[in-house]
Nucleic acid binder design. Structure first.
Lengths: 334, 334
DNA sequence: TTGTATGCGTTATCAT
DNA sequence: ATGATAACGCATACAA
């Protein structure tokens, strides 16, 4: 059994081009410092034998992996992935590769993943917190000293940049609109309270109620899921004139439950969501909701991480993107 | 500027424990070959200074990265990610980490990604082909010599294992059912014909038509998207009694277009899909469709890749999972 | 059982 | 402008 000559290395190229290894390396990293003649010759050889530098070796030498990690609660949730895509689209132009990890909403898994990412020597991470309980995220991140950007969900106990949207403002605007259109009793279906986005949205709701002097409302706590919206409706003390879902899924679940209970949307009760996810405009009736710029959020998070990685000082600790309300068919004038 | 003593290395541990570097290495990799006394001492030091082996260095030395890559057409499509999750769930038990890449349905991007993955020294990949045109996938994969498993979409020009579902069988069964329930004219809304799954499903449709002697049907070509289903309906020469979508999204789009044209589903026309994606059971009316075991497909692909990576010979070149028809509200007996 | 020395594929330092 | 060589952190063949 002979030695396995798996891949062409920088040495092969050097030999074939009749130059030293360092010249090849220079052509790759500082092309301007090599004479035109040699540079062209080396480039030709590189292409001929399809040489690709071994990133592992490069990483070992430079200490830089050109890899960033993403940590999101659910790898099958299109919203999280659209954020990830936004960040990737920005960062790949800077030459980065990506590792995307899902925590299944578990803080324990989140810790495990963070360690794994660290062991892989990622240069930085963008994280949307799991929202799980007893998170040791703070200690971990502090100890690991990993460059970190929080996306969509902030984590107050850590002093790291945050990119998110104006959750409270969006919900408040929508609640105001509901009041303007004559609704007088409300229910708010809150997502996981362990997440900052759920808390902020709820706060927006409360802000509007207080500002407008409305006291006839009910708040129910659940998850950011279709099923949760469905179940929460069945716990209403009294059917309200308007129900606000913590997100679109919750709102959609609520609509189904309502219609099963014999209440017609929007004729008898109005329902609104938050997200403006893909399907919301196609559901029947189409969903009135608060639109948040998901992809853009990721893109901005990518920018911020890049700042961190390239050593630039952050001028601002947080980026808050605006939300807008999208009027469709699930709200009627009363 | 002093040298940056970023991380504790195997040498620090060795020095602190008063042993050689190789002993530390052995404690990590072949603990049984070290005396109890030294082993315990080394382990204590490792824990004290929180030493974690540098995976990069380890990879360079062993040639093994313990990383596999996933290449899928769209990173924001929950179906693809559920497959990925299936594969990850299997492979992570074997100690692997993952890089997930989306090609945006572009063959060019697919090539770029494959090269990048190779440069990252992934040990193998699981790929769902982009379906883009003029793919140089065959050459690339052959040349790179990367261990590869095709998932969901096969690529006939390459002799690599394939894990998929019985697309043709599922559609055929559903078409048979439609015929049994009295439907006499059909339309098939086909997804990207560059993908094997679209072609196989279409073939299933044709098989059923021929087998049952039905000639009154129309085939329209588009994409696997909601919008495509919506648009294709408006190109019907004649509204059929039953329309079959290339997937659920297409079917859902078709339903909306039909209702806008004034046709009621299922009273006037029946519609079926393929996938049984999350939302299909909640849409109004809920969608009758062919269910395919998405997660399981990924899990099986993970198994197959593991076989490849651990050097086992493949006993079978392909794994085809069964599909089942799910009866809901979008089909009526005629 | 333990230690010494070599090399994995790069990049960077230092000569020339 | 170019080349020889050390070093990155680790695993292993070989020596002791």
């Amino acid at each position: 059994m002979k030695k396995k000559e798996n891949r062409v290395s920088i040495r092969h190229v050097a030999k074939l081009a009749g130059v030293s290894v360092s010249t090849v390396s220079r052509v790759l990293n500082h092309p301007e410092s090599v004479s035109d003649e040699l540079r062209e010759k080396v480039i030709r050889v590189i292409e001929e034998c399809r040489y690709r530098p071994n990133q592992i070796a490069r990483s070992l030498r430079t200490g830089l992996t050109k890899v960033v990690g993403f940590v999101i609660p659910d790898i099958t949730n299109p919203a999280f992935l659209l954020m990830v895509k936004g960040a990737e689209d920005y960062l790949k132009k800077k030459g980065y590769s990506f590792i995307v990890c899902g925590t299944d909403h578990s803080a324990k898994e989140e810790s495990r993943i963070l360690r794994a990412l660290m062991a892989q020597n990622v240069e930085g991470i963008i994280i949307t917190c799991s929202g799980g309980q007893r998170s040791e995220l703070a200690n971990l991140l502090r100890h690991l000293g990993l460059k970190t950007v929080f996306m969509d969900r902030r984590y107050e106990r850590i002093d790291a940049p945050y990119v998110g949207v104006d959750n409270a403002g969006g919900v408040e605007k929508m609640a105001d609109y509901l009041i303007e259109t004559g609704h007088r009793s409300f229910a708010y279906l809150c997502g996981e309270r362990t997440t900052s986005s759920a808390r902020e949205r709820l706060q927006g709701f409360i802000n509007s109620m207080q500002k407008n002097g409305v006291t006839n409302y009910e708040i129910l706590y659940g998850q950011f899921t279709f099923e949760s919206g469905y179940e929460l409706v069945r716990k209403f003390k009294k059917i309200p004139e308007a129900v606000m879902g913590g997100n679109d899924l919750v709102a959609l679940g609520a609509i189904v439950a309502l219609s099963e209970l014999g209440y017609r949307v929007p004729d008898e009760v109005s329902v609104v969501g938050f997200d403006d996810m893909f399907y919301s405009k196609y559901s029947k009736p189409s969903l009135t909701t608060v639109r948040q710029p998901i992809y853009k959020m990721g893109f901005e998070a990518g920018k911020v991480l890049w700042k961190l990685l390239s050593g630039g000082r952050m001028q601002q600790k947080e980026v808050i993107l605006p939300t807008e309300i999208v009027l469709r068919e699930t709200v009627r004038q009363r």
